[in-house]
Computed example of a mutant assay.
Amino acid sequence: MVITVAGNKKEVKDGLTVAQLVIDEKVETPEYVTVTINDEFVESGTFESTVLKDGDTVEFLYFMGGGQ
């Protein structure tokens, strides 16, 4: 199946979970990443059970703090 990850189309295996995609994409600091699928936020506790579908668009987001 084909999904879009961070703006790039990728061929991936059927049944791929968000958790496995985070590993496959070598996401830095995965414990702090927020994931959206088709512009919908995915709860971090459901990464293992959320299965991607053909045509999905996945983005990895990091929220930065700081400043004064």
Rank of each mutant, 00 (worst) to 15 (best):
M1H: 08
V2C: 06
V2I: 14
I3D: 02
I3M: 02
I3G: 05
I3C: 06
T4F: 01
T4G: 05
A6N: 15
G7E: 04
G7Q: 10
G7P: 04
K9V: 12
K9P: 13
K9C: 08
K9F: 07
K10G: 07
K10R: 14
E11F: 02
E11W: 06
V12N: 05
V12S: 07
V12T: 13
V12Q: 03
V12A: 04
K13R: 13
K13Q: 13
K13L: 03
D14K: 09
G15W: 05
G15Q: 03
L16Y: 06
T17V: 04
V18G: 05
A19V: 00
L21V: 08
L21Q: 06
L21S: 06
V22D: 03
V22S: 05
V22M: 09
V22H: 03
V22I: 15
I23Q: 11
I23K: 14
D24R: 00
D24K: 01
E25G: 05
E25V: 07
E25F: 09
V27W: 03
E28F: 00
E28K: 11
T29M: 12
P30C: 05
P30S: 05
P30K: 00
E31R: 09
E31D: 15
E31F: 04
E31N: 14
E31A: 15
Y32L: 12
T34L: 14
T34Y: 04
V35L: 09
V35T: 12
V35G: 04
V35C: 10
I37N: 10
I37Y: 07
N38F: 02
N38I: 02
N38D: 15
D39S: 15
D39I: 04
E40G: 05
F41N: 05
F41S: 09
F41I: 12
V42Q: 02
V42I: 09
E43V: 08
E43G: 06
T46I: 09
F47E: 11
E48D: 15
T50K: 10
T50S: 11
T50Y: 01
T50W: 01
V51W: 08
V51R: 04
L52N: 03
D54L: 06
D54M: 03
D54H: 09
D54S: 15
G55P: 04
G55A: 08
D56V: 07
D56G: 14
D56C: 11
D56K: 09
D56R: 08
T57S: 14
V58M: 07
V58E: 02
E59Q: 09
E59R: 11
E59K: 11
F60K: 06
F60T: 10
Y62N: 13
Y62E: 13
Y62C: 08
F63I: 15
F63K: 03
F63C: 14
G65K: 01
G65A: 10
G67H: 06
G67M: 11
Q68Y: 08
Q68W: 00
Q68A: 14
